[in-house]
Amino acid sequence: MKFNAKTFAAFIFSSFLMISSFSSASAERMTRAVADWTGGMVTCEVAEQILEQELGYKIDSIVFPSGTGLWEAIADGSDIQFGCESWPSYAEADDVMINMPLKYDGKVVKEYSGDGSIEAYTTGIIGSSDYFVPKYFVDANPDFKDWTDLNKYKDQFATPETGSKGRLIGCAVAGWNCHDQKRLDLLGIDFEAVELGTEVAALAEAQAAYARKEPFLLYFWTPHWFQGAFEMVGVNLPANVDCPTYTEAENWKDCGTDAWPATGWAKDYTMNYMNPAVFAKPENAAAKAFFSKMKLSNDDQAIMINEIDKNGRDIVEVVQEWKDNNKDQWINWLP
């Protein structure tokens, strides 16, 4: 190969690219992942507007389905630097990648001892999960009080696939570690949990059943847009009690009917999560301080979710309106 000016230029150019690709995460420009559910979008939009309008950052967004790969991409840090509103019960990666206590209101709510490739702070949104039935079912069957009555009505919940048992539209993704079937068995509920693979699939089936006014039992969580659009009633599973031996390492040894997974879920202190190296830079100290203070309330988020999903308004507009009217809240989140 002749070593002429062209190859030399190409060489210079590629080494420049190489260096720039390593350092692209610098400056006050950051990229966030757009969550693919409305609640997450709202939380992220709130963060983005405050970072941009009050703290002078420039935030780009990338649509990125939650779950696989997102945590790894943030840990890598060159393309995405932070993501919003992860739910600890469902995040697979949090135990592996976070190495710090998660604090809410100054109190430690969860200890992590992962490899420290991700840093996380609570968003203020507290999620709760349960099994739900539609309100019209409860109205039609006033005897139905809570989960203990499910067996009485199981015929109404049966489908061709489940035979004589009732059908629970369970946790959609195995990775969420819901252990639905185990819970049903332990609690003696004669239902079969189906795992539909994606949240969309579970909600689509629920929505169709709701439109037909059929009874259905659905696992889901609040705050969620589904809650605003459809009237659902929780079955009040027993309060959460931890079972230390119910892990893969201990070969899923259960603690009987008094503890997880025979109970409901723990409260989910949702978190914003980010790349530690990027946020350790002095120019990003303001952003880091903001995230450690942010505390959006469930009620505020629910109002915004409703505006967006029920009234079909634009998310940027809705969040801007909230921000203009609630200065007394977010002023406390600034560094």
Binding site: G67, G69, E92, L196, G197, A201
Partner: peptide, 20 residues
């Protein structure tokens, strides 16, 4: 199809991916 409740190897792929 695992996206809407299909089973088999496809689901295994998703299960693997969900756990990186």
């Amino acid at each position: 199809t695992p996206l809407i409740g299909g089973k088999g190897l496809g689901k295994e792929v998703f299960a693997g991916l969900a756990r990186s």
